[in-house]
């Protein structure tokens, strides 16, 4: 049993070491939240309030910066998680995978170590966003923070599994670059990340609703519920039942790992 842990530890450690030595990935993980929160957030902040009977009110009961902040955490976790699958393509391309496949480790352990490593890095990139919390007027309370970190790690694990499933289906770097942009950004934009689901605030605005297809897409997107869960924890605002988010995150992780393991065992 201890020996099995040693193997998983070795694979996990390798992922983490590689991430630490990859400066480009770190810069991306730091600049992405800065751009999204400071430029988009500050820029659009004034437009997300309306004047009602002389009171300045926000569309959602928070500033846009606060509204956006949890979504950017998800964005960073999502980018890193899905991108960590790039290293699976690397391993296959540059032969390292064979070194692992000829070791006496069961396939499930190999995949678990790999995804645990990717999840750790994705989680760390999510934590980078927390560093700019004070610029967005989000106050992090310890009790919320623990739950938030747990959800972030779960999400990182799930999205790394999704990345692994994608990596198993495409075979080249170029393919992956296109795919990740085709997958990550649409998932992000249709997760109610940058605008609330219900634009109605005042009587005149109730007539301005989003088209049904968009609402349907948002509701079908599992990332919507992950964003909602983090929003609930960090700013106390939920658009859905607060219980749904954690369940969806757990489901992405479990189903994602099962599919990734099925693919991985079948191919090698």
């Amino acid at each position: 049993m201890l020996g099995a842990l040693g193997g998983i530890y070795a694979i996990w450690l390798r992922e983490v070491k590689r991430a630490i030595r990859d400066r480009g990935q770190f810069i991306g993980g730091l600049s992405r939240p800065l751009v999204w929160v400071l430029i988009l957030g500050i820029g659009l902040n004034p437009y997300f309030r309306a004047e009602i009977y002389g009171d300045v009110r926000f569309v959602v009961p928070y500033t846009y910066l606060q509204f956006l902040f949890p979504a950017v955490i998800v964005l960073n976790v999502m980018y890193t998680g899905v991108q960590s699958a790039v290293s699976m393509i690397w391993d296959r391309e540059f032969g390292f995978l064979k070194e692992v496949l000829t070791s006496p480790m069961p396939r499930s352990h190999i995949l678990f170590g790999k995804i645990l490593g990717g999840a750790t890095v994705a989680f760390a990139h999510g934590c980078l966003v927390l560093l700019i919390a004070q610029f967005t007027d989000v106050s992090l309370r310890m009790t919320d923070l623990y739950l938030g970190l747990l959800l972030m790690f779960g999400l990182g694990f799930g999205l790394t599994c999704v990345g692994a499933v994608i990596a198993n289906r495409i075979r080249s770097f170029e393919g992956f670059g296109v795919f990740s942009n085709v997958v990550i950004l649409p998932l992000y934009f249709t997760s109610s990340s940058i605008f609330p689901l219900n634009p109605a605030l005042s009587g005149s605005q109730t007539r301005v609703v989003y088209p049904e297809w968009l609402v349907a897409v948002i509701k079908a997107n599992p990332v919507t519920y992950a964003v909602d869960a983090l929003r609930g924890v960090f700013i106390g605002f939920n658009q859905f039942d607060p219980g749904i988010g954690p369940v969806v995150i757990a489901a992405i992780a479990i189903v994602g790992f099962a599919v990734a393991l099925f693919d991985f065992s079948r191919q090698s």
């Binding site: 040693g6 193997g7 070795a10 030595r21 064979k98 070194e99 692992v100 070791s103 480790m105």
Partner: peptide, 20 residues
């Protein structure tokens, strides 16, 4: 089939760990 971003020692240690 070495990991070129790890050191010689790290590659060998990795092998030792996965081979228990």
């Amino acid at each position: 089939s070495l990991d070129s971003r790890l050191t010689v020692q790290e590659n060998l240690n990795f092998h030792g760990l996965v081979h228990r």
